[in-house]
Simulated scan of single mutants.
Amino acid sequence: MSQGTNQYQEIVQNGLWRQNPGVVQLLGLCPTLAVTTSVVNGFSLGLLTALVMAASNASVSPVRRWVPSEIRIPVFILIIAALVTVGDLAMHAYLHALHLVLGIFIPLIVTNCIVLARVEAFAAKNNTAPSALDGLMMGLGLALVLAILGGIREVIGKGTLFSGIDLALGPAAKQFVITVVPHYQGFLLAVLPPGAFMGLALLVATRNWLEQRRQAKAGNASSAPVDTAMAHGH
C-alpha cells in the first residue's frame, strides 16, 4: 500500500474517530450545544461546516507559501468568512425555512475553532488534496456527533425522530418523520442547554469506553504470540 493511500486513510480515521472534533478535541461546542435539538438541525449545520472546512483547507493550501506569517491568521479568517457567506446566501436562497431555524449559527461558522484550527494545523502545512480531505473528514466527524446528539435529545425531549426534515427536503418529506414514543408529553430538560451538556458527556464517555476496549483487545492480541513463544521455550 502506497504512502499516499496510508496518509488518506489516516486522515479519514482521524476525522471520524481518533481526533473527532466533537467528542475528542471538544471544539465547536457553541453549535454542538445550541442547534442539536433535532437530527435535522444538527446534521444540517454540521454538513455545511464540513463543506466550509473542505473548501477553506483547499483554498488555503495552494496559497500558503505566499501568505506572510505575520498576517496569516487574518488572511485565513477572511477566506473562511468569504466561503461561509457563500454558504449562508445559498441556504437563504434554496433552504430558506431551514436557514431561519439555524439563524445566527450559520455566520458563526466563521468563528468556529475547528475551522481555523484545521486550516492552521493542516492546510497551512500540506498539499491541496490531503488538506481538502482533512477538512471534509473533520467536518463530517463533527456532523456525525451533531446528528447523534440531536437524535438523542429529540427522542428524549419530543419523542420523535427527523422532525423538521420538511425544512430541508420540502413538505413531501414530512412522511419521513418517525414517532418513536406515541402520545409523548415531552421532556423539556432534554431540549434545553443542560440536556445538551448531558448528552455530549454521554457521547464522550461512550467513545472513550469503546476506544479503551479496542486498545485492550489490541494489547491482548499482540501479547498472545509472545506468551505462546514463551510456552514453547519452556
Rank of each mutant, 00 (worst) to 15 (best):
Leu48Glu: 02
Ala117Gly: 12
Ile156Gly: 04
Arg65Glu: 01
Arg64Phe: 00
Ile77Arg: 09
Pro68Leu: 05
Ser59Ala: 15
Arg64Ala: 04
Thr111Gly: 08
Pro130Val: 07
Val115Ile: 13
Gly42Trp: 07
Pro107Arg: 12
Pro31Met: 06
Met91Lys: 05
Ala81Ser: 15
Cys113His: 12
Val23Thr: 09
Gly159Lys: 08
Val67Ile: 10
Ser44Gln: 12
Ile109Cys: 09
Ala54Cys: 15
Thr37Glu: 03
Ile73Met: 14
Ala93Arg: 11
Leu161Arg: 15
Gly164Asn: 12
Gly150Trp: 04
Leu142Thr: 12
Ser56Thr: 02
Met53Phe: 10
Gly159Asn: 10
Leu29Arg: 05
Phe105Ile: 06
Pro130Ala: 08
Ser163Asn: 13
Trp66Ile: 07
Val86Ile: 08
Gly103His: 14
Ile80Tyr: 07
Tyr94Gly: 05
Phe122Cys: 01
Gly150Cys: 14
Leu78Gln: 01
Ser38Ala: 08
Ala50Trp: 13
Val67Arg: 04
Val110Pro: 11
Met137Lys: 07
Val75Phe: 09
Ala93Tyr: 07
His92Ile: 00
Val145Ser: 10
Gly151Trp: 10
Ala117Ile: 06
Thr49Arg: 06
Met137Glu: 05
Ile77Ala: 15
Val84Met: 09
Val40Tyr: 02
Ala93Thr: 07
Phe122Leu: 03
Ala34Met: 07
Phe105Lys: 07
His96Thr: 12
Leu133Tyr: 02
His92Lys: 01
Leu102Asn: 15
Leu136Asp: 15
Leu27Lys: 15
Leu116Ser: 06
Pro130Gln: 13
Ala90Met: 11
His92Ala: 08
Val35Asn: 13
Val40Asp: 01
Val24Arg: 15
Leu136Lys: 14
Gly28Asp: 12
Gly135His: 07
Val101Cys: 01
Thr85Asp: 05
Met138Thr: 11
Ala90Asp: 04
Gly103Ser: 10
Val84Asp: 03
Pro130Phe: 05
Gly135Cys: 06
Pro107Ala: 08
Thr160Cys: 08
Glu154Cys: 02
Pro130Glu: 13
Ser59Ile: 12
Val60Met: 12
Ala54Lys: 12
Thr128His: 05
Gly46Gln: 11
Ala132Leu: 14
Ala132Asn: 13
Leu102Cys: 14
Ile156Glu: 04
Arg65Val: 00
Asn57Asp: 11
Ile114Asp: 00
Arg65Trp: 00
Thr111Ser: 11
Asp88Gln: 09
Leu142Met: 11
Ala129His: 12
Ser38Val: 04
Phe76Trp: 01
Ala93Ile: 00
Ile165Phe: 15
Thr160His: 14
Thr85Phe: 05
Phe76Glu: 06
Ser61Lys: 14
Arg153Leu: 01
Met91Thr: 05
Gln25Cys: 03
Ser38Thr: 13
Gly28Ser: 15
Ile104Met: 14
Ile152Lys: 02
Asp134Leu: 09
Ser131Lys: 13
Leu47Glu: 02
Ser69Cys: 00
Arg65Thr: 02
Phe122Arg: 04
Val86Thr: 02
Leu136Cys: 15
Pro107Ser: 14
